[in-house]
Design a protein around this nucleic acid. Structure first.
Lengths: 210, 210
DNA sequence: CGCAGCTTTGATAATGATCAAAGTCGGTGG
DNA sequence: CCACCGACTTTGATCATTATCAAAGCTGCG
């Protein structure tokens, strides 16, 4: 079907970039949501490619690389879109890295905030809930936490009344409270957005700022 | 001197991108070595900028952003260089993220391997040694490990005979052994390089592969 | 029904953080 | 030249977070 020389673009579903460690463990390096380019980078350097798995059923569009390269000159808007995605992708990765310094429970809450915001950007989430087809094991692989500990962290978030989960859907009774709990600021996900965040006052004990 | 609208380019020294957590801790998100662009991204989205500190005395060149933008069309090679740097930068960040899943000692060893390779690329390291002006605290901030634990991990690497440190210089008695210890593969740092790694056989117990 | 995959729970172990204090070293001022 | 100071490193002791192991409950599905 699709050629290795194509560029892929996720239309629907959820996928993830990953890497396998020597001991067999898998590390998820990011999630791809509808609208994201799957493999932009490899056009310059195949060696950078990370394999991708689908998390839920996905539909994908693919364009010949050559055409894409040509379009970049012809349609500046496309070039901007590509660059924009590179930037957001990089910002997300740096945020994940930043979050490795905060405790498991916060990292999990942050992941949920991030996914909700990104899904909302593509019309698949609102303030109160969003679909999530990750297993707890996959969540663990994404934020470098054992499955057992994910389970306990999630339970604690539930006990705190910050989230609820029902058949593959996360419910958030009070989004502002959840976001303030982790000090979540969506600025890094909104390159077009203003330079100032809405979420200006995080809780005094929330682990992130900046 | 330099205008906020300039693009900066590190000529000499070492600098680091960082973020400050709510509890005051600092997280280093990457190191900038000679030849690296300091703040390419912000031209599209100021909100993504992470502050930068100099680790050692640095010299920096700055170009007006507008000129750079213009040059991109005019000189494809420059455009390629910029993209190349974006890719390497992203690859490094993803590798750091990957490494958060492996134990402290390996993470530290990996950082040393990475810095050596990058410094070698700009003629500031050879197989046996390289200059390093990081304090142990800064190393800890880079790989999310407490200062005390960095000290102990480093000591252990010394005991294993993998590294030695003398006045701001890291000595590596046997580079192949150190790299195989962590399963270090420099492919992600060499976008121009072949698709296959030289370092094909990592030690059976090394924590990274792929 | 019964299996497979996922979640949940309990118990124990390991990694790494934190706290406190002492030791080293280079530089600076008297 | 020496004493002191500040920044960094090292050590010891204790604590916390998180991993690991093992087993039992769930749940959807063939």
């Amino acid at each position: 079907m699709s050629d290795a020389a194509d560029v892929h673009f996720l239309l629907d579903g959820m996928a993830s970039r990953y890497i396998i460690l020597a001991d067999g463990r898998r590390v998820l390096l990011g999630f791809l949501l509808p609208g994201d380019f799957c493999d932009l980078h490899p056009q310059l350097a195949p060696v950078f490619a990370h394999p991708i798995i689908s998390i839920s059923a996905c539909s994908v569009a693919h364009y010949p690389r050559r055409a894409l390269a040509a379009w970049r000159g012809e349609f500046p808007a496309l070039a901007t879109a590509l660059e924009r995605w590179c930037l957001v992708d990089g910002a997300i990765t740096r945020r994940w890295l930043t979050n490795m310094a905060i405790p498991a429970e916060y990292r999990l809450a942050h992941l949920l905030c991030e996914l909700r915001t990104r899904l909302a950007q593509v019309g698949q989430a609102d303030e109160a809930s969003f679909p999530l087809f990750l297993t707890q094991q996959e969540m663990g692989e994404a934020i470098a936490i054992s499955t057992v500990h994910i389970n306990r962290s999630l339970q604690h978030l539930k006990e705190l009344g910050l989230v609820r989960v029902m058949n593959h859907r996360v419910f958030i009774p009070d989004l502002a409270r959840l976001e303030s709990f982790v000090g979540f600021d969506s600025a890094y996900l909104e390159p077009g957005g203003g330079a100032f965040s809405r979420n200006s006052s995080a809780a005094a004990d929330s682990p992130i700022q900046g």
